[in-house]
Write a protein that binds this DNA or RNA. Sequence first.
DNA 1: GTCTATAGCCTGATAGAC
DNA 2: GTCTATCAGGCTATAGAC
Lengths: 193, 193
Amino acid sequence: MTEAGVTGLSLAEVARRLGVQPPSLYKYFPSLMSVYDALFLRGQREHLQAVRDAMTPAEPGLDAIRAGLDAGGRWCLEHRALAQLLFWRPVASFEPTPEALAPSNEMIALIRDQLVRAVATGQLGPAADSDEAVALISILTAGTLGQAMANEPQLGWGESRFSALFPTLIGLLPAAYPPVGNIPGEEPTGSSS
Amino acid sequence: MTEAGVTGLSLAEVARRLGVQPPSLYKYFPSLMSVYDALFLRGQREHLQAVRDAMTPAEPGLDAIRAGLDAGGRWCLEHRALAQLLFWRPVASFEPTPEALAPSNEMIALIRDQLVRAVATGQLGPAADSDEAVALISILTAGTLGQAMANEPQLGWGESRFSALFPTLIGLLPAAYPPVGNIPGEEPTGSSS
DNA sequence: GTCTATAGCCTGATAGAC
DNA sequence: GTCTATCAGGCTATAGAC
C-alpha cells in the first residue's frame, strides 16, 4: 500500500513477495476485502494503543489529550498507508466490519473521558463534555494529519510544520469552551453545583 | 470517480459512457494520467472561483475568510471525488503538472491577502500575516472537510455537524493571533508604528 | 497447506484501415 | 476522428492434484 497506494494492494503482489502462489493466500483470507478488514482492525488497535500509552502518564485533562493525540499523530505518519485506510476510506468497495470498527468507539470514549477531566479541573467549560467537542478535536487532528500527508509526503511528525501547530490548536480549546468565571468583565453563568 | 473511487477511473469506462471505443479517447488525451491532470486543473479553477466569488462581496478580513472557505467547503462536498483528487492525492502514480498546480498558489495568496486585511483592521495580531497562519487555516478547512467526507458520506455542507463547527473554528483565530492591546492585564507589545 | 492450471474478467495503449 | 483488431499485461477467484 505504501508503494502503490492503498487501492493498489493486490493479492498477487502479496503472494509474490511472500514467495508463494496467489491461490495459497485463500487458505488464510477468503477475499481481498477480508485482507483490508484484517489490516483495518490491526491498524485501529495499534493506533488506539499508541494513544492510550501516551495518555496514561500525562496529567489528566488537556495535557492527556495533547499527549495522546500527539502520539497518535506520530503513529499515523509512521504508518501512512494504514492510517489512510483507517481514516480516509479511499477504497470505495470496502466497508469495515463492526468488529474492526470497535476500537474507534473506544478511542472516542478515551477523548471524552479526558474532556470530562478537563471540565472537572476547570481547564474547560462544561460545554466541552459533549459530542461536539469530540468532533472539534477530531477536526483538528485529522486536519493536521491530512495536510502533513498531502503536502509533506517525506516528513515525519517531528519535522512537519503542520504537526508543529498541533499543540497550538489544542491550546485553543479553552477559547472554544471557556471555563466559567475566567472571562474578565463577565459574570460566571451555568450550574452553581 | 464518484462511483468507483478516484483511483477507479478508467478510460474504458469513460469510452463506454461516451458511446465510443477506447482508442478514440487517445485523440484527445495521450494517457490516463493526462486525463487526471485535466480534471485536476479544472477542479482547481472551479474551486478557486467558488472561493473568490464568495469572498468578494464580504467584509474584508475574517468575514471574507469565513465566507470564502465556507463556499469552498460547499463546493468540495458537491464535488467530493474531484475534491479528493485535488486535496488528498489518492492516485499514487499521478503528479499534477505545474500548470495544473498554479491555481493553488493563487488560493494561498487570496487567504494571505485577507489575513493582511484582518491585521490592518485589528481583528488579528500582526503574527497572523504569516505562512503559519495560512497553514493553520488550511488545517481547519481540510480537517472539517476530511471528517465530513469520511464520516458523513451522504450529507452536504449544510447538513454536516462538522461543517457546522467551521464558523466556530474560524472564530478561534483571534485567540491564536490576539490583536495587540486587546489582552486585559497585559501591555501591548510589538511595533509602535 | 501448497501447488498447477485456468476461467473470466479487467486494464492501458498501439497499429493501421476507413 | 472514428473504427476494428490486437498486444501485453494485470487481476480475483476457483477447481482439483499432491
